[in-house]
Design a protein around this nucleic acid. Structure first.
Length: 276
DNA sequence: ACCTCCCTGGCC
DNA sequence: GGCCAGGGAGGT
């Protein structure tokens, strides 16, 4: 599942090849991918002929800044991945968006479940879009423990869904939230506002460590839907997961079986023995 | 602040 | 054949 480490790995993999190039052709095979674009025709029109100046990322949103103040935003949803390919290479199934560049390399968004999207925003539209409402990036601008305390103060929502709230801190998804709480030895059910100073410090460090480890090991690829890097490699972090997807298996620290609860309609894996 | 829905492939 | 996975939007 593309969460922050997977999106960051994607950004790094494509930035070298696509930065500085001009967009030559845009194809959208599934209109649904443009559902965030107020007028779908704007997407191809706004990209065409413009040079890609840089690739950045905010949370799970991948952003290409184009000349003329156009922001090309890509979200991978839960099943999206970016493929770089030459025009002659066969397209794999579910290649829903293709952006060709004058350099010859095509950006291909492959997304079976179509929860991802692309859009081209002008500056005021970007600010009004979900990108404009994101909290600080969990990798590049992770708040200090003290700041986290301020962000979570007074909130009765359990800490797990609070970590998934992209307006508080952006980039943490369901897998890395469970992993961070496991590392921090904090129960996912704890009211977000109840964390004490030492716990906030552990949580902050755990979020940073978890995301760094995900990035280092090439992300998380699950069985049912292999997340793939743009070069087709599978993420190797999966084998290192401590909690996520390990229901009934022994906790790597205390040996008690990992349990699965559903919080806010989301699977949550945790250890009752270790996490308080 | 909460729940439902979107979508498809893979698995039981 | 039916269920499940899940990020984010929209509705109540």
């Amino acid at each position: 599942m593309p969460e922050l480490p997977e999106v960051e790995a994607t950004r790094r993999a494509i930035a070298g090849e696509l930065t500085g190039n001009r967009v030559s052709l845009v194809e959208v095979g599934r209109d649904r991918m443009l559902r965030r674009q107020e007028r779908p025709g704007d997407f191809a029109e706004r990209l065409s002929g413009r040079r890609i100046e840089r690739w950045r990322r905010h949370g799970k949103f991948l952003i290409a800044d184009l000349e003329g103040d156009v922001a090309w935003v890509t979200h991978l949803g839960m099943s999206g991945r970016v493929q770089l390919a030459g025009p002659a290479e066969a397209r794999v199934a579910h290649t829903n968006v293709v952006v060709a560049t004058e350099g010859g390399t095509e950006f291909r968004l492959v997304d079976p479940r179509t929860f991802g999207f692309v859009a081209a925003y002008l500056p005021d539209e970007l600010a009004a879009s979900p990108v404009g409402r994101l909290g600080p990036d969990a990798l590049d601008a992770l708040p200090s423990a003290r700041q986290l305390g301020v962000l979570l103060r007074g909130r009765s929502v359990p800490i797990k869904p609070a970590l998934l709230d992209q307006r508080i801190v952006s980039g943490i998804g369901n897998i890395y939230a469970d992993e961070a709480l496991s590392r921090a030895a904090i129960s996912p059910h704890r009211p977000a506002g109840s964390l004490e100073t030492a716990e906030l410090s552990r949580l902050r460090r755990s979020i940073a460590d978890t995301l760094q480890m995900g990035l280092r090991w090439g992300g998380t690829s699950l069985d049912d839907l292999a997340y793939l890097l743009p070069d087709g490699a599978t993420g190797d972090y999966t084998r290192r997961l401590r909690a996520y997807g390990r229901e009934g298996k022994p906790c790597r620290r205390c040996g008690l079986p990992i349990r699965r609860d559903v919080l806010r309609q989301r699977s949550t894996f945790w250890c009752e023995g270790c996490q308080r």
